[in-house]
């Protein structure tokens, strides 16, 4: 009886070790969270636009083509670093990007975009950060890939790097 009792803890021991091994070998970031909105429709929002006179209404813009949504701010250093890749999405790949300006000063944002270049088709303003909360954003920059039907397909936390740039481009080819 006692011998069999020992088999169960040994199997458990092995199981736990294998799980740890698996987690170590796959590509993962232990502090990163998968978006809870994947494969769901984008959260609707309506707010003022940074550079245009009319308000930005999400239901009017999404659901027609593939769009990238990039949460950014002028006080965010990594946002500045990823700017070249964001610009490349728009210039080289012709993808529409909407840049949501998060908790920022509109004056500073206008200056920032005019000096670095504006890759965004629209810049809705998220003055108090509530739009970001609706999108489950917890640290900017964050970039979302939205399908032509308005479904969130992918979220990246942190600045877009070369690797992520390639990954998003491949992803866009697959979805519609």
């Amino acid at each position: 009886m006692k011998k069999q009792l020992l088999i169960i803890p040994s199997i458990l021991f092995l199981f736990i070790l294998l799980t740890f091994f698996y987690l170590l070998t796959i590509e993962r970031n232990p502090s990163e969270l998968p978006s809870n909105l994947l494969d769901k429709k984008i959260p609707k929002f309506e707010t003022e636009s940074l550079l245009k006179n009319e308000r930005f209404v999400s239901s009017k813009e999404f659901g027609k083509e593939i769009i990238l949504v990039n949460f950014f701010a002028t006080w965010c250093q990594p946002c500045r670093v990823e700017h070249t890749y964001i610009t490349r999405f728009s210039n080289e790949k012709g993808i529409r990007i909407i840049g949501i300006n998060y908790k920022d000063s509109p004056k500073k944002a206008v200056k920032w975009l005019s000096s670095l270049g504006n890759p965004y088709s629209d810049v809705p303003v998220d003055k108090d950060g509530r739009i970001a909360i609706d999108w489950g954003v917890y640290g900017i920059p964050e970039t979302f890939v939205i399908s032509s039907k308005g479904i969130i397909k992918y979220r990246h936390i942190g600045p877009v790097t070369g690797k992520i740039y390639k990954k998003i481009n491949l992803l866009i080819k697959d979805i519609e």
């Binding site: 021991f13 070790l17 740890f20 091994f21 170590l24 070998t25 232990p30 502090s31």
Partner: peptide, 28 residues
């Protein structure tokens, strides 16, 4: 090992984790 983050964890490095895991497997 970097398998989870916490205030206390040292720098993350999966190769260290794999070594320790093998060591645990051996002595355990």
């Amino acid at each position: 090992s970097g398998i989870l983050t916490s205030v206390h964890t040292f720098a993350l490095d999966p190769s260290r984790g794999i070594y320790i895991l093998i060591f645990i497997a051996l002595i355990g």
